[in-house]
Design a protein around this nucleic acid. Sequence first.
DNA 1: TCCCTGTGGTTGATGTGTCATCAACAGCGT
DNA 2: ACGCTGTTGATGACACATCAACCACAGGGA
Lengths: 159, 159
Amino acid sequence: MDDIDPRWLDDTEQRAWRAFLRMQAQLTARLGRELQADSELSLADYDVLVHLTDPAGGRLRILELARELDWEKSRMSHHLSRMVKRGLICREECPADGRGAFIAITPAGRAAIEAAAPRHVETVRRLVFDALSPDQVSALAEVSERILEQLDSPCRTPV
Amino acid sequence: MDDIDPRWLDDTEQRAWRAFLRMQAQLTARLGRELQADSELSLADYDVLVHLTDPAGGRLRILELARELDWEKSRMSHHLSRMVKRGLICREECPADGRGAFIAITPAGRAAIEAAAPRHVETVRRLVFDALSPDQVSALAEVSERILEQLDSPCRTPV
DNA sequence: TCCCTGTGGTTGATGTGTCATCAACAGCGT
DNA sequence: ACGCTGTTGATGACACATCAACCACAGGGA
């Protein structure tokens, strides 16, 4: 028996945690559904395309993209294959490194993201920011950043 | 051309939104991984089992469970099948309604959730609540609840 | 030159989520 | 009795994520 008697959550914490879990699940579901309905893109597709519109030439090394999105390389590869098949992006050789590859946005992909972005932003505003006061927006940012720090910190309580 | 020129996000909003998206993705990934490593349960399994420990008899009608978890009935059905195969739960006939069915937690299921819960709660505390001040916890609750209201409200701006 | 290790990237198996569709049945009106 | 309608649940096809194995090349030594 390795009985850890954990520090259970108190009422306030439980309330926050339950609300957060529900909100998070419902919000992403809704954002995904609306994006899909408006533009035939999934949230994942959207993220990929956004990252490909920034850099000059609209192309990135594959693992560079994976790092930015925080995806596993395998997930990245599978997803890119599907997007290639749909004509949103294409693979390009990397002359400087024989094993490497670029992935680049196609005109069709650019058209897709440019059509999708305004509606998506509008959705985010309607579902999230319209509901929040400026103070709440700041609080959300701070809480998120604080938790991100916590996640990055190497602390993993040794067993 | 239905050119909506959307109200783009300002800097503060962008900062909040980006941080929230990253946080949300990384946090659930991490919670899932640790839960799985500690207990052979996915977050979804955990949720199902939690809901089955509350009611007397540890059993619920299937759609009742789906409603509480906010899952589609099809997802529910698939997931239950897998959990039955693993011996965590079992289906039981409903005498009152010939087509209906109960789903109930098995002793093995109860053992699994009781073993998993303390560590999981500890993880949540370590990754989330240890990082936040009491004010921030309240703010998180309020923001989440506010967004949930917004999601439930029937407003769907007509095109 | 040859091997060796690390890195970039793909592939296939498996588990999981979503959607559309189907079958069984209850409740209700005729 | 009959058909309608809504509910409950199962199933098959497909999108997606994760894991482990793998291939191809780069950059070293020996």
